[in-house]
């Protein structure tokens, strides 16, 4: 056997092993999602007897019932216990995700633009501060943050939590800065001649030039905040989101949360997952194609 054949043989073995491994992984992933989806259409008794098989009858009403029956209990000062159902849970999810995404992206984009395109004394300082914040790991800020939030009235406040996302530091800042650096300043000069103000140049000329990057960052931020259920546990107990509701259901005694049993919880799982899957499908090219800026050096 020649040397090259041995080498190609190694590659062939690697490909077969990886194909098998990835196939097994894919089958488990598809199987689990399919199991959740099929089980969500089952009646409680059907699921209890046959947790693996196809539903004897598809109970589409499960999806209607969870909107009426599944709720999260919150304690409102002065009122007492209050049940929050899925429409309101989704509303909080949406407000939290959109609010945090908008504040976070706009703040970072503004600072990144200023640092990339203007010469002022703070510019290199801000860039360096961001790098320091990214590389110096600080553990255990949570108690201090919670104490401060309670002291200034930011604890358990949806609007305040969105405002808190307005800091400029993080990887998104680096990506936006790198992108703004590649945009020519000549467009701004042309707009200046036409009498545009600094703000108009930023908002109407420069931001649209980097809209692809802003869009992908906004999408990833939105998904992160939509999926964030810890926020209710940690900072915002009175405004439960849909993801937090799912956490509550899956960690509660199954008989205590609903008459529908496990299928109801799996319905809730599907309902929480659905908006993200739709978003992913609509913007799949952006997700799978545009995220090639990972090569930024640190």
């Amino acid at each position: 056997m020649t040397k090259s054949k041995v080498k190609n043989g190694k590659w062939g073995v690697f490909r077969i092993v990886m194909l098998l491994l990835l196939s097994v992984y894919s089958v488990t992933m598809i199987f689990l999602i399919a199991w959740v989806l099929l089980s969500s259409f089952k009646a409680k008794s059907d699921f209890n007897f046959y947790p693996l098989g196809f539903p004897k009858k598809f109970y589409f009403e499960n999806y209607v019932n969870i909107f009426r029956e599944l709720s999260v209990q919150v304690t409102v000062p002065g009122i007492g216990q209050r049940s929050i159902y899925f429409p309101e849970l989704f509303l909080y999810s949406l407000l939290y995700s959109v609010g945090c995404t908008a504040v976070s992206i706009i703040s970072k984009a503004m600072v990144a633009y200023a640092v990339a395109k203007y010469r002022f004394r703070l510019a290199p300082v801000l860039y360096t501060v961001n790098i320091i914040v990214m590389i110096v790991p600080i553990v255990g800020r949570l108690p201090s943050e919670l104490q401060l939030m309670r002291a200034i009235g930011f604890y358990d406040n949806l609007l305040a939590l969105c405002i808190m996302k307005g800091s400029f530091t993080g990887m998104d800042f680096m990506l936006l800065h790198a992108t703004f650096c590649t945009v020519s300043w000549e467009y701004a000069e042309a707009a200046k001649i036409d009498g545009a103000s600094h703000f108009t140049i930023m908002w109407s000329v420069m931001f649209p030039m980097v809209k692809q990057v802003i869009l992908i960052l906004a999408l990833t931020n939105f998904i992160t905040y939509w999926n964030d259920w810890n926020v209710n546990v940690t900072y915002m107990p009175s405004y439960p989101t849909a993801a937090y509701a799912l956490y509550t259901f899956q960690n509660s005694n199954i008989n205590s949360i609903s008459m529908g049993g496990v299928p109801y919880v799996l319905c809730a799982c599907t309902v929480v997952m659905l908006p993200i899957l739709v978003l992913f499908y609509v913007f799949r090219d952006h997700f799978m194609g545009e995220v090639s800026f990972g090569g930024l050096k640190g």
Partner: peptide, 19 residues
């Protein structure tokens, strides 16, 4: 399929796995 879990909330994947 490899990318899918990274866009789903940990509470969704934990619910699927745990149940």
């Amino acid at each position: 399929l490899l990318f899918l879990p990274s866009i789903l909330s940990s509470v969704i994947t934990v619910t699927m796995f745990k149940y």
